[in-house]
Design a protein around this nucleic acid. Sequence first.
DNA 1: TCTCTTTATGTCAGCCACTGACATTATAAG
DNA 2: CTTATAATGTCAGTGGCTGACATAAAGAGA
Lengths: 190, 190
Amino acid sequence: MPRNSEDVRYRMQIAALELFTQNGFDQTTAAQIAARAGVTERTFFRHFPDKREVLFVGQEILSAALTESIRQAPAELPPIAVLRRAFADVTPLLEGNRRFSEPRRHIIAANPALMEREVAKHAALVGVVADALQKRGIVPARAAFAAQAGLAVLGHAVDLWFGKSARSLAQCLAEAFEELDLFVAAAGGS
Amino acid sequence: MPRNSEDVRYRMQIAALELFTQNGFDQTTAAQIAARAGVTERTFFRHFPDKREVLFVGQEILSAALTESIRQAPAELPPIAVLRRAFADVTPLLEGNRRFSEPRRHIIAANPALMEREVAKHAALVGVVADALQKRGIVPARAAFAAQAGLAVLGHAVDLWFGKSARSLAQCLAEAFEELDLFVAAAGGS
DNA sequence: TCTCTTTATGTCAGCCACTGACATTATAAG
DNA sequence: CTTATAATGTCAGTGGCTGACATAAAGAGA
């Protein structure tokens, strides 16, 4: 019965990426994005609660995927191993989205309001992951800490991946976890 | 030569707190705040870059005070001790602002857009503190970690302080640091 | 093929956050 | 009592975002 709503949504995301890259976020109006996608401004705001959110829809998919992987992990695994596994599980998802997430990064980094939203989304993701760990019986404080540290590692891995190297995301993840190990080992000193 | 600009700014902050508490953030217009302070909407936006910011001006003072205390701390102190000292230094500042920070908390907690700003400000504060620690010769990774952990302790202390107890902020800080010690000691197990 | 129903979209009016440009006041220095 | 300076007032305008109602697309059933 419904129209092809997914398609419209996708076209608006693409249009937004193009326009934001060309002219910047502030210089692009919601009406322009909608027009390029062949719809009306009103339709834009029916799909996205605000103009910024057109850049952050993928985050929820990642959030759900991580939660699911954590839920299904073997019961005997310690928190860090659970996260390692979860990150490996979402690797294809992240790799498939690189085309979009790379310009997205530049757009966000260039705009304070978008940085604000990004930070908030990150905090929310940390909370979701911490909750998922808690449901495995891990005490809240340790779950929160593991979530924070784990997502820091994931973020670092993605940073490496977006660097000019040709390494795969899986390799970058392995490197990032190794750096964490080195850091923890070195901290034994003081 | 200038008019009493500080006074106007202060009146707008008070007016905003009152109106936000009474009617909520979204239901209060910038023009209403300005009118209650005896000025124009335009003047409001000359003092605050946006409507939310009227609730976040104190943050910069705290940020500056912390940075200064960290800079002046004895060279031999380890990061956590530096932060402990800095938090003690800003205790009177925080205690003097309790009248405002308490309603502020409720207003912010009730509004997602304000929570977003709060999270961003917190992240910025962590960055500033980490920088200040770095300038004392602490390596970036450890400085960032100490800043994050330290501000978590401070936040927890303030949470305790805002609880229904009659404890002083200094007492709450001591308790929060003790909890950190216990947590670290317990983590020795795994 | 023709309804009929459901859902997405179009249209329109309107509020409010925020800004630029220029005029006007208050304050303190002389 | 001037006068220079910084703060405020005034006004018009843009754009984000919303509610209400009308319209169009697409599938289900006759």
